[in-house]
Each structure stands twice: as C-alpha cells, then as structure tokens.
Design a protein around this nucleic acid. Structure first.
Lengths: 150, 150
DNA sequence: TTTTTCGTTTAGAATCGTTCTAAGCTGTTG
DNA sequence: CAACAGCTTAGAACGATTCTAAACGAAAAA
C-alpha cells in the first residue's frame, strides 16, 4: 500500500542517517515530513515547529512520546541534517523541515516564520571569515511588524 | 574634570531618552558606553554582553545592582535605541552597544559575536514584505566554526 | 530461539535564563 | 513636608530545555 511504502521510505531515511527507526522516531518523522499523514495541506511542506508543538501533535495523533524524546529527536534530526534549527526569539527554538538554502521572514507580532527561497536574496560582498574559522552558514532574518497602512 | 564631564554626557543621554538618571542606570550606562571607566580597551567600543555578564561587572565594579534591574535597564535601553538585542543562541540574549546598521559573525565554538559593518554586506533582491507587514530590520548572522585547516 | 548488548525512552527532578511580585525606596512636585 | 510616581529589590515563579537513572526494546550474538 501507499501508506506502507511511505513508511518504508521514512524508515530508510532514518537508517541511512544512522538512527534506529524506533516507534517514537518514526511517529515524529511522519508528523514532520509527511504532511498527508499529519492531516495537513500537502503543499505546506515547510514546517516551523517547536518541541512543545510537536509533542502536542504526537499526543493528539495517538502516538504518545515523552517531551524529553521529542527534544532528543529534534536535536538528532538536526545533527544528521534532516532538520535545521532557527533561532529568532530569545527563549524559544524553531525547527525547520526545509533544510535547503533559504532564509526567513519573521512576524514579530505572532512569532510566525515564513521561508524565503535562497535565490530570492543575494548576498554580495560577504566579508572573509576571520582567520582560523570557516563559514558554516549564513542566516538572514527579515523581521516584520504590522504595517501602519493596512 | 574629564570624568565629571563624561558622566554629565551620560546623564544627558539618559534624560534625553526619557529615563531618570538613577545611580543604577548610570552605573550600567558607564559600563556599557564608557570603556575607559570599565577598564576596557577604549578601541573595543562594540560590546556584546549578556545580562548576567553585566551584572557581574557591576558587582565587581563596586556598584551593586540587582539582576532584575539589569534586565529592566537593558530592555529600557533597547526600547529607547541605546542598545540592540541580538538573538543567535536559544536561551541567551546578547545586547549590542553598536546600534548602527550592521551584522554579525557568530563563533559557534565559544559564543562570541563580532560586528560586521553594514556596508560590508550588500543585500540584493530583498523580496517585498508580505502584504500588511513592514520590514523592521534585517539581521544577517554569519555562523562560524573552527576551520579544519587551522 | 534465547541471550546479551547497547542504544533508546521515560517520568520527574533539576537547571537556566528571564520575568514577576509585592514591598520598600527615592526623588520630584505642589 | 505630603503625596505621588517612578525605580529598585529579593526572592518567588516561570517556561523552555536538559539531566538522571531506571526501564525498555531492537537487533546482534550465541
């Protein structure tokens, strides 16, 4: 079945990343990477989610996972490149299912994040990294507020 | 005297921002904006400091200020534009004494921040802000790691 | 199979940075 | 000098995250 096939793909993805496909990790991977299974608009592939949110989703999906495991899993997924951590607000971390080169709009009003495709921002004249260090990543955060005119 | 004159300038700066120049606020302002008084290399004008650090500095400078006041003051200074908050790590806020247009190198190893003058990065093709919102600021964070080749 | 091993999960406690609370101060104004 | 508003404070509270130590489970070895 399609569903079966989908799970197999996720299992392979985890194995390939060196992570044992446990029940918990699979459940979280489904919620993160399989919008259909998560009853989401399939076009909404790029999710920006907090640990707390993912925990809630897992619970209401009938896949109880402890909060500690959610944290562990999010960090492991990030380490192996399945997720990317986005830091925009003090005291709260978002995890982004879009790991391709891109940037973010951040709505200061409601804390929402919106992807900006990488090609849509061109960074010219990046200064060279200080000696002894290498550029790991460049994050551009465009901070938005409600505009007074509408 | 020079020192007297310097304090006067700081007092004026606070008053002008609508903040009563209390003993505590003056002490913190001195540490933040007056490198000489803080026994710092005067060329090191751009400080990236956490509340905890500033609290420690005030204590060891013989100007006891409660941690709550440090937080209050940092936020007030930020509101009136004397400081700028920089968010790069989950669970820790830095306050930047450089409020001009600029960006940051962030050393993932030790959590240090280094300013990149605004002119040194050119952002081309910034996408328009979504309807109903306005761009408040654009933050560029160049994340660095130790380079393997020294 | 069964056993063993070692990674994984867990509840709950602990921790960390930050914010809140409620009381006392301080300093300005009338 | 009375009275008010603003400021500071210690300590409690908070929310997100991490830690702990014990139980569990997947999969390799026997």
């Amino acid at each position: 079945m399609t569903v079966e096939r989908r799970y197999t793909a996720l299992i392979e993805r985890l194995k390939h990343a060196g992570l044992r496909p446990t029940r918990q990790r699979l459940a979280l991977a489904k919620l993160l990477f399989d919008p259909a299974a998560a009853a989401l608009d399939p076009s909404a592939r790029d999710r920006h989610i907090t640990a707390e949110q993912l925990h809630d989703e897992a619970m209401s999906a009938g896949q109880p996972v402890s909060l500690a495991t959610v944290y562990n899993t999010l960090h492991q997924f990030t380490e192996v490149g399945l997720l990317r951590e986005v830091v925009v607000e003090p005291g709260r971390s978002y995890f982004d299912t879009n790991v391709s080169d891109h940037h973010h709009f951040f709505f200061e009003g409601d804390g929402r994040l919106l992807d900006i495709p990488g090609e849509q921002i061109r960074l010219a004249d990046l200064p060279p990294p200080p000696p002894g260090s290498a550029i790991r990543r460049v994050d551009v955060i465009v901070r938005l507020s409600e505009s007074e005119s509408d």
